[in-house]
Computed example of a mutant assay.
Amino acid sequence: MDRKARVTRKDVAQKAGVSVATVSYVLNHTKTVSEEVEARVKEAARELRYQPNLIARSLITKRSMHVAILVDNLNNPYYIKLLEGAQKLAAKKGYIVALMLQDHLNSENLDQLVSRQIDGLVVTTQKWKGIYERIGSLIPCIGPQDYSNKLLIDYRHAMFEAVKTIKRYGHRRVAAICGLEQGTDDPRICNLREALENEGMEVDQELFIWGDKDSETTVTKGYQAMDQLLKRGREFTAVFAMNDLMAIGAMRCLREHKLRIPEDISLWGCDNDDRDEDLQIPLSSIDVAPKSIGEELMRMLLAEIEGSQVTEKTIRGVFVERKSIGVCKH
């Protein structure tokens, strides 16, 4: 199929009856012209379907207008919402967003981000340390509190509310299925321990089920962690799951062991997936507004790229109680 020749600024200038320089002033917003001239140039550009040569522009501006966002995978709806928020803001600013998955990433891919002149990277994966250390000094990188200290995801208030609710229903023995490798300094688990201690409840390390070095927090890992917890034979009546996917896996395991939710075991997760209300037993969860997280991370990245001040932001989680939590009957 034959393609039409690319429309240039010279073509726009001829149609609008102005100089090429004037077209540049209007389209780049670099110099003020009369409203009448500006309108003619924009109308000519629209009629000719003019598209600027971003490659040529990048040689001048030193920006590609292309950023990337790295997530673990797309199995977790949390990342879908986060991407939606990030993409929405980037599009408003004229940036294209490339999506990269940690599950299919190698060190060569990271190096290619720099060589392809990506303007910056939003990192949301659990394995951020090696990534940040490898390219953080080469291109702007922004992520949650663990490494950039720009955006704080505050689970503490919501976790305290969850534990208060559990205690009010009579629960005293609380377990956690973590998914992450033991020793990971995750704020959700830290806040859970703090909340239990604050309410005078025992923190039994044998009731904390950790993952392996892959730090996967999937439905399958939730099922396996709950199965491991039950096999330990220690008493518990309530469980926190690192995210809603793990909570769903835990639900399946409990059903197979003929344990009822919440009559036998109360359960809550984190992320407040849209599907939580539609589960057979609606899942209690901590909502951290992932779409807002995506927007804030992208706002901070673009500010850093453009040399603006990056203001810090805290997003506070909210505990959403549903029918997966009930009165302790043991």
Results as ranks from 00 to 15, higher is better:
128 W>M: 06
161 E>Y: 09
144 P>A: 09
168 R>A: 13
118 I>T: 10
209 I>P: 03
80 I>A: 14
135 I>A: 02
216 E>F: 01
176 A>I: 08
142 I>H: 02
99 L>F: 07
86 A>I: 02
103 D>A: 04
161 E>H: 11
109 N>S: 13
160 F>H: 13
132 Y>F: 03
223 Y>N: 03
147 Y>L: 05
127 K>G: 06
183 G>Q: 13
160 F>N: 12
167 K>I: 08
83 L>V: 00
167 K>L: 05
204 D>T: 14
216 E>N: 04
170 G>C: 12
82 L>M: 06
198 N>C: 08
215 S>A: 03
134 R>M: 13
183 G>A: 05
187 P>W: 05
93 K>V: 03
106 N>T: 12
89 L>I: 02
179 G>C: 12
157 H>S: 12
142 I>V: 12
142 I>K: 02
211 G>S: 04
165 T>P: 07
199 E>H: 04
90 A>L: 08
189 I>N: 12
88 K>S: 08
118 I>A: 00
169 Y>V: 09
94 G>V: 10
152 L>S: 00
128 W>K: 01
146 D>N: 07
183 G>T: 14
224 Q>I: 00
100 M>D: 05
157 H>D: 15
217 T>L: 02
120 G>P: 08
114 V>R: 07
149 N>P: 08
175 A>W: 03
132 Y>V: 10
112 Q>P: 05
89 L>Y: 03
116 R>F: 00
196 L>P: 07
143 G>A: 09
143 G>H: 03
137 S>V: 08
78 Y>A: 08
78 Y>G: 11
220 T>H: 09
183 G>E: 15
81 K>S: 12
219 V>Y: 04
144 P>M: 01
